[in-house]
Design a protein around this nucleic acid. Sequence first.
DNA 1: CTACCAACCTGGAGTTACTCCAGGTCAAGT
DNA 2: ACTTGACCTGGAGTAACTCCAGGTTGGTAG
Lengths: 120, 120
Amino acid sequence: MRISEAASKSGLSIDTIRYYESSGLLPPIERGADRQRRFSTVDVEWLILLASLRDTGMPQKTMRHFAGLYRQGDGTIPERKKVLLDHADHLEQRRGALDRCADILAHKLERSDEITGGNA
Amino acid sequence: MRISEAASKSGLSIDTIRYYESSGLLPPIERGADRQRRFSTVDVEWLILLASLRDTGMPQKTMRHFAGLYRQGDGTIPERKKVLLDHADHLEQRRGALDRCADILAHKLERSDEITGGNA
DNA sequence: CTACCAACCTGGAGTTACTCCAGGTCAAGT
DNA sequence: ACTTGACCTGGAGTAACTCCAGGTTGGTAG
């Protein structure tokens, strides 16, 4: 498929996908006779993973490391696993931040209702 | 209190606090006779709120809007409330992204255990 | 056949939100 | 008097996009 479809399936923008390719986050993407990119379903799965990691705060540096491990084959599975486990920990911390923020917002909203009487 | 204490209480870095002041996210911070900043507990509460909004993905543009409303007094409470409610919605979406990512990671980890036999 | 259009391409500039650094001030301790 | 530590300003550097100008290609409409 072409880049626009890969973008809508992964949730990454077209620009971001091209940028990710140029910065080594993607394997070399095939090109057609027209020199345009053709993404396989495997490529798109990788994009979806990257999108998910990005959306939950993984820095590109870490993603680049992870992509590098991937390219080196199954021998790197233990280290890849470690990266993913670390990120899973990170997800917990993010969840904590969301909870704390929700708490603060609830207090603020309650207080603003006291002042305006709840209408408006 | 001084900036280092305000930083450790709010979770923002010293540089970020100075940057936030210069970009209009903070009210003018008092200075001592030595021209150094002195933060009140109210200032620090504001910093904590900003830190929480930032950590959950609110763009500075929105924070600047919100800070502006704050400066204009109680008449802006309805609009401020709207900003906070919108952000509460946003928190839900972030939570969804965390859940989806946790799912993907769980699958990946399971698969890597199949390959390595779970050891390593 | 040619004109046009949409979707693609590259290289590079611009934006957001910090982050770091050089060079300087000030109060307090030795 | 001198050093130390926390602070100051202005400005450069970085991460991760995002946008834009200018050019190519494949398909369709006249």
